[in-house]
Design a protein around this nucleic acid. Structure first.
Lengths: 313, 313
DNA sequence: GCTATTATACTCATTATGAGTATATCTACC
DNA sequence: GGTAGATATACTCATAATGAGTATAATAGC
């Protein structure tokens, strides 16, 4: 086996937000796993693609007819047997995963926008505790903790479960989405076809499965995006030219999966200096709201420009 | 050209801190670029290495005789012609870069510890403004700004230079190490052998060159590590079991390349709950300092445990 | 004009942060 | 055994940031 028995694949979590619902672009992959949705992916074409980013943009355009704006590399996955074909002598597959944001939700060929939280229902806390956590996950964690080998082991388990899922005193941290996925996976609660090795799954956890380990990639993307929001002005990639502060807040809430305190959010954004009023205002519902625009020049002033998280509620 | 004309290489920025000096492990690579130092790197052995991390640890042990503790994937580089052999029909090289932290500075075979800031001298502001910035970089930036195509272009350039290098009102942000490297590179001030395409370099900038684009990888690692310090307790990977608060402070200062306010640093660390006193104390110099240890259980309490940056000075 | 609805302005207690001053406890050396 | 030098630790205080509200303003629909 030479070093060339490696196949390099680019995979993309392409995100848009419409109707306050974050969505990722999915394809029905017919080649494996029946009809499960999967992330768009394409092989790196070393003859054509000078850079990885270019390759990514190229086949996203080809496959889904979408021109992505912001693109960021997420992680490279290379564990053996991630891809089932490896068991039958197929090449080792190396996946370079990307996060991409698009402003407009263009319709597209065989692709479909799928609500992100359909894959990860426990991540959406916008109306309360997200029943799954209290109802299904917390009890499973309790059991898992009591099954620890030693007292120290139980303590470690309790510690980890508490931190990751915000139990007991610990606050819920939106950014820990990937940690949560991985703990659930370890508990056998992620019901994906590709894991044949660890006994049957509990299968009680709601949430749509995805092809291969694409749900893990989707969770990694969610973590990364949530983390980035607070120190980089990436939200604006998802917004139209002008927007009201409530629109912006709803967007941030949607991505973080939590509700925020309106007045404090406004204060934070205004003081942050990332936006400026346009004088125009939007009419819909109650009192008209001022329309704002993103100030592109102003990466200055604040050392870490971004939309932080003010108080909830 | 088939998809198999790709070579996958793992490269590691292995960091240790001794005598308040962050150092990275380097090798003299004899195969190209004469005697320039380079990062340790090894091909992924798909027959042997089940995961990328394992592969990395394996050849680090083989090449340098070091067992690394903390390991984190940084970025995957795949631009064409990163590797000069590609121009002569060599395979496309894909480099997966890692950051690794080791506690003890073990001596090793053909490897040598090299002060990180020798490669990136402008990143060390522990004794003042790091003369390079004011003396060499700032003037070059000024020229670059005035050479902008239009007024808007000049404004954008001034904006970028200001943010990235902390000029004018903007504060110096340690985390922007990679941004700084990339701006310097664009200005032709990075004097590396592998860039033959953009005319000759100014060559006045101090700092040792590295093989290929390894200096960029070193800069990326510095950015990542500095960013991570404030929200994850990774420093402790670099410290002995017990340590004084001053030792901890000096370490954080070394990595961030800035000085901190002692009393406030102490307050921050103590309130953070990451450490606990051991009752024992260290005798050296003046009044003995209490020895602390890292509290492993306590990832709880604070949502983002880490050692933040208090006031400077 | 009334109600529902959303926007925006202020207030206020609490906590965090930047920048000091003051005091304590060692070693080395006279 | 006293003092200088060095470091550790304790406190103070002004200012800014944050969480959680209350109060008021401007619209649409009736």
């Amino acid at each position: 086996m030479g070093p060339s028995d490696i196949e390099v694949v680019l995979e993309a979590v392409i995100v848009a937000v419409t109707d306050n619902e974050p969505r990722v672009l999915t394809l029905r992959s017919s080649n494996h796993d029946g009809a499960l949705p999967g992330l768009p992916s394409g092989a790196l074409d070393i003859a054509q693609d000078r850079t990885l980013d270019r390759g990514l943009r190229r086949w996203i355009r080809d496959q889904a007819g979408i021109d992505v704006g912001y693109v960021e590399q997420l992680y490279t996955f290379g564990d053996r047997f991630r891809h089932p074909a490896e068991r039958d002598g197929g090449p080792r597959v190396l996946s370079i995963a990307y996060l991409a944001l698009v402003r407009e939700e263009q319709p597209s060929a065989g692709a479909a926008w799928w609500p992100w939280y359909r894959f990860l229902p426990w991540e959406d806390h916008r109306d309360g505790e997200a029943g799954v956590v209290a109802g299904v996950i917390a009890p499973a964690l309790k059991t898992w903790i009591t099954e620890g080998q030693s007292e120290a082991d139980k303590h470690r388990r309790a510690e980890r479960a508490g931190v990751v899922f915000g139990l007991d005193e610990t606050p819920w941290d939106p950014v820990r989405a990937l940690d949560r996925y991985e703990l659930l996976y370890q508990l056998g609660m992620i019901d994906e076809a590709f894991r044949g090795d660890e006994g049957e799954s509990s299968a009680v956890l709601p949430g749509d499965p995805m092809v291969l380990d694409h749900r893990r990639i989707a969770a990694a993307a969610l973590s990364r995006l949530r983390g980035k929001l607070s120190y980089r002005p990436v939200v604006f990639e998802l917004l139209p030219e002008t927007f009201t502060l409530l629109t912006l807040q709803k967007l941030v809430e949607a991505l973080n999966g939590i509700r925020l305190h309106k007045q404090n959010f406004r204060r934070l954004v205004e003081r942050g200096g990332l936006v400026e009023g346009t004088g125009r205002r939007s009419h819909s519902g109650g009192r008209p709201a001022e329309l704002y625009r993103f100030r592109r020049e102003v990466l200055r002033e604040r050392p870490r420009p971004g939309v932080g998280l003010p108080a909830r509620g």
